[in-house]
């Protein structure tokens, strides 16, 4: 691990899930700094500011919930992918959706990984390992979807 923390943007409206994501990342042993954003609109503001400010560093990961208030998670993903300096930001879509269409949409929009929010605590905490393995340079696609 590097000394500088890995910047992770978390767009999630459910405080229960925010807690779980944080816990998963903490348990993975990753040195990280988490930017929490709780709705789509706020996420868009954050991304716009990031795009306008040349000095601001792009996050290494973006964990996006799909079902967000105000602005849809897919739109946030789309915006993220538009920003040139975010081209290395790995987007992990967190969702409980079982619509196959959702999966197809986010694949098309360039998501790096699709994490289906599980009903099981241990399975959820594997999210941390997933981020670590992607960060260590292993293939994000290989980690696949734990669902």
């Amino acid at each position: 691990m590097n000394d500088t923390p890995v910047t992770i943007l978390l767009v999630e409206d459910n405080p229960g899930d925010v807690y779980l994501v944080r816990l998963a990342l903490q348990q993975s042993g990753l040195n990280f700094s988490l930017v929490e954003v709780s709705d789509g609109e706020e996420a868009m503001r954050y991304l716009n500011a990031l795009s306008d400010d040349d000095t601001a560093p792009a996050p290494s990961f973006a964990l996006l919930d799909l079902n967000l208030p105000r602005v849809d998670g897919k739109r946030v993903l789309e915006r993220l992918k538009e920003i040139p300096k975010c081209s290395h930001t790995r987007a992990i879509v967190l969702t409980s959706s079982e619509y196959p269409a959702d999966r197809a949409d986010v694949d098309r929009l360039g998501a790096d990984c699709y994490f289906h929010k599980p009903q099981d605590l241990e399975a959820f905490l594997k999210l941390g390992d997933l981020v670590v393995s992607m960060w260590s340079g292993e293939s994000g696609a290989a980690a696949g979807s734990p669902s």
Binding site: N14, D17, S96, Q119, L121, F124
Partner: peptide, 20 residues
């Protein structure tokens, strides 16, 4: 049944958390 799964997931995971 789909939308019910979302809040249930919270109940499920956090009761597991309690257990853990």
């Amino acid at each position: 049944s789909h939308d019910l799964q979302e809040p249930l997931r919270m109940v499920s995971i956090y009761s597991q958390m309690l257990k853990k």
